[in-house]
Amino acid sequence: MRRELGALIGFAVGALALLVLAPALLSDFRLSLLGKFVCYAIVAVGIGLAWGRGGMLTLGQGVFFGLGAYVMAMHLKLADAGPSGVPDFMKLYGSGEVPGWWEPFRSPVVTVIGVIAIPSLVALGLGAAVFRRRVRGAYFAILSQALAAAFAILLVGQHATIGGTNGLNGFRSFFGFALYDPVNKRMLFYIAASTLLVVLAIAWQLYRSRFGELLMAVRDQEERVRFLGYDPANIKIVAYVVAAAMAGVAGALFVPIVGIISPASVGVVPSIAFLIGVAIGGRSTLFGPAVGAIVVAWAQTTLSESFPSFWIYFQGALFLLVVAFLPSGLSTVASLRRRTREAT
């Protein structure tokens, strides 16, 4: 009962901070920056589900983030080009014709479905292949990382059809709303912030459910769950697919807010970087991953502006110290305090 109340208070505070305080206090520029961090936070909620609750160290969330982002970016490019028009970069580098696999994304409906469905299907494919064969732990981590590496390399190689290293950028409108208009940029922030709250609510309900209990059981004692008659593979696949879908949605929101998606934000390094906020916030808590992701992204922007080399040392040290000595993140500190209070 107390936990329910805690979660509800958390949602109320989150909604107040994101939907009321932030838009009232922050400049347009800062608000758009916060919107970007909110996208990272959505990815982090998924990682919390897969890694914190499910024990699957996924080092390839950048792939799903990227799939969602590129699907959205392709639609925005096509929409900017107009009906049966050709995106600008294709005229520059490519044959001047739109490849067949771009065509479906002219439709906004297909795009919105694709943003969720395509990352989910990729995760389903890899998850089914990997978890059914009981490949797990470090092996899974390595495979998910190799997936991120392969995906980034694939994107870099396709200069004429998907923008290569440059990625896709220069979007002018988002489903008919002009992106240069500050009002529409604010609207994007509201969409991202509401999505984060919805994603958190989904995670909350999953954690409260029987599925959530099973997922934690699989993390802690996979064989025992198997002996009880459940199939751990199915449980893990569901969590992995949900995490992938969350990353895909985050990517799709990232594109209009930030205005660019390139292989540099989907490869091995950004995929691991997603983890740090989750680790700091507390990987198995409900709000920890999202809060951690926002705080780390904010710290990175502030610190790396003034001291770029210092930020890398700081990031490395954070990984090292938090994971080694505070495995439950900063939320450990809170639970330690609660324990001491109850003891006295």
Binding site: G55, L57, A141, I272, A279, I312, Q315, L320, L321, V323
Partner: peptide
């Protein structure tokens, strides 16, 4: 905690690169 070692050594890798 083998999986956590992965992340810790990633932090070490970042520092060494810098």
């Amino acid at each position: 905690r083998p999986l956590d070692t992965l992340l810790v050594t990633w932090g070490v890798a970042l520092i060494l690169q810098q």
